[in-house]
Simulated scan of single mutants.
Amino acid sequence: MSVVVANPSASDNYFQFFGLNQQFKIDLPVLDQAYLAIQKEVHPDRYARGSDTEQRLAMQMATLANSAYQTLKNPVQRGLYLCQLHGVDAKLETNTAMPAAFLMKQMEWRENLDERAEDLPALESMMEEVESSRQATLLEITQAIDHAKNFEQAAELLRGLLFIDKFALELDDAIAALV
């Protein structure tokens, strides 16, 4: 018995590992299917009677599949991974520079959240605006990565998407507190 995965030689590239095109816009159901197929193939129970080497390799492949899946499933992580593959470090910890218009929008959202924390219709309306901004940013990231191959721009957009996602969670919490 030997451990077989979709493409073990491609374990240094998550897209190849799952047999996907290396791009930002991916078919999530195809990712899910590829992940489940690999997990089924390398499940530790299948190697319970195998050698120590087979068991260790199966565990390593299962761990790699989990890590790769979590990275590609999340748009921010997928985008950062693509930037990394192309030699661009988003420097999330140190680079917080954002376009002025984006920063103004963030400040406006924060002020509105503070001022309307008890106004459910206003918060729900704001959530629609935040989700619309998120979708627009995802489209811009897709354009930057898949079409323009501009990974520096993509890194900036991904930093913005992180801000949007974080704010959306805070807004969701504020809405949940009222319902």
Rank of each mutant, 00 (worst) to 15 (best):
Q23P: 15
P75D: 08
W109N: 03
L80C: 00
F167A: 01
D52R: 11
L82I: 05
P121L: 05
V130W: 08
V3H: 15
L120P: 04
Q70R: 13
L138W: 10
E140C: 08
A10I: 09
Y69E: 04
K73E: 06
E152W: 10
A48Q: 14
N150K: 06
F18Y: 13
Q23H: 13
Y81S: 03
A155Q: 04
T96N: 10
A117D: 04
E128Q: 10
E115M: 06
M104C: 00
P75N: 09
T63F: 03
P29H: 14
E152S: 14
I175V: 07
R49H: 12
I145V: 12
L80G: 02
A174Y: 05
L80Y: 04
V76C: 13
Q16E: 15
Y35A: 04
E108V: 00
D12C: 09
A155R: 03
M98Y: 14
A148D: 14
G79W: 02
D146L: 11
H43D: 13
E170K: 03
E128C: 00
D165C: 11
L113K: 08
A37F: 08
A154I: 09
K149N: 14
D45I: 07
A37W: 04
A136E: 10
L72T: 02
S51F: 01
L169Q: 08
F18N: 07
S67P: 00
G79P: 13
K91D: 03
I141V: 15
K91W: 01
A122K: 14
M127I: 01
E129F: 00
H43W: 07
D32V: 06
S125K: 12
K149V: 00
A90M: 03
E128A: 08
V4H: 15
K40F: 11
E124T: 02
L120W: 01
S125W: 10
A144N: 02
T63E: 08
I141S: 09
K25Y: 09
A117H: 05
A62N: 11
E41Y: 07
F102S: 06
I164A: 09
R116M: 00
A90W: 04
S11Y: 13
L171W: 01
P75Y: 11
A176S: 08
V76Q: 14
L20S: 14
E128V: 07
G87D: 03
K149E: 12
R78I: 05
V42K: 07
S133R: 09
V3N: 12
E118L: 03
A136T: 12
L92Q: 05
P29G: 13
F102H: 10
N74M: 02
S125T: 02
T137V: 06
A174V: 02
